[in-house]
């Protein structure tokens, strides 16, 4: 693997709880985790296991109650330029064209419009939407809109790409082609990828390691190395065995 731009994440003693109906509900309990620079870590877990919360803390959109997250040794406070988030919904600004939306992240970070658009065009082409640069979001299909969201995140050239169930709202066919696209982008862009999903097959297809968050109190966090050559073949017997292993973890097999 080529050396990545950086993006070693150290998570220590991280905890977070929410007040629900007057009761404190702990979703993360003293989590320790190291994410290696350049790897693809996929987080799975039952709903309520705190996987999205963990990703939002990494993004700086939410504050932890205790513990710390450091990137390349530096403790993070809030959002940062070395990270970019891809949400479950494309979250495109409807009044901007595809080009405007993709350049938005750079412009917000103070890059001049012309330069931002130049870089945006490169990533629009990378996700295969060059012909649609001048289209407005309402003219795009769900899969195309999500690819615009991906291009927007790539354009700021983050060290760490945080993906919150990015393909969760897509139909099955589009989803598979987008998984292939994400795998390609990850290997080409040399970026550390942390992704939340509830699709186990998606996790095995993309992950170097799969992190399984426990749901119940006192349950242990599990990490599974996915040792398969890329590009991966879903029907291959070892792929299927990983899938069975994950299903067992969820008590479904």
């Amino acid at each position: 693997m080529a050396t990545a731009r950086g993006g070693d994440v150290t998570i220590r003693d991280l905890s977070k709880s929410f007040a629900i109906g007057g009761r404190q509900l702990a979703v993360l309990r003293s989590l320790d985790l190291d994410i290696r620079s350049g790897e693809c870590l996929v987080i799975v877990g039952a709903s309520g296991s705190g996987k999205t919360t963990l990703l939002r803390i990494l993004a700086g959109l939410e504050r932890a109650d205790g513990g710390a997250v450091a990137i390349d040794g530096k403790r993070i406070e809030g959002v940062g330029e070395e990270r970019a988030v891809i949400f479950q919904e494309p979250r495109l600004l409807p009044w901007l064209t595809v080009l405007g939306n993709v350049a938005f992240g750079l412009e917000v970070r103070g890059i001049a419009k012309a330069e931002a658009e130049k870089r945006a065009r490169f990533y629009i082409a990378l996700v295969g939407l060059a012909e649609f640069s001048d289209a407005y979001p309402r003219q795009l299909s769900g899969g195309m809109a999500q690819r615009v969201g991906i291009a927007r995140a790539l354009t700021v050239q983050p060290e760490i790409l945080l993906l919150d169930e990015p393909l969760g709202a897509l139909d099955a066919m589009t989803k598979i082609s987008m998984q292939e696209e994400l795998a390609r982008i990850w290997s080409e862009e040399n970026v550390t990828m942390v992704m939340v999903t509830h699709d186990l097959e998606e996790a095995i297809y993309l992950a170097d390691r799969v992190l399984i968050l426990p749901r119940e109190k006192g349950g242990a966090v599990r990490l599974i190395d996915v040792d398969l050559p890329r590009p991966r073949e879903r029907s291959e017997s070892r792929f299927v065995r990983y899938r069975e292993e994950l299903l067992r973890e969820f008590g479904l097999h």
Partner: peptide, 12 residues
């Protein structure tokens, strides 16, 4: 949409 506002916030 608060989600759009959050998106902008996430980009700094």
């Amino acid at each position: 949409d608060p989600k759009l506002i959050e998106m902008a916030r996430a980009y700094g």
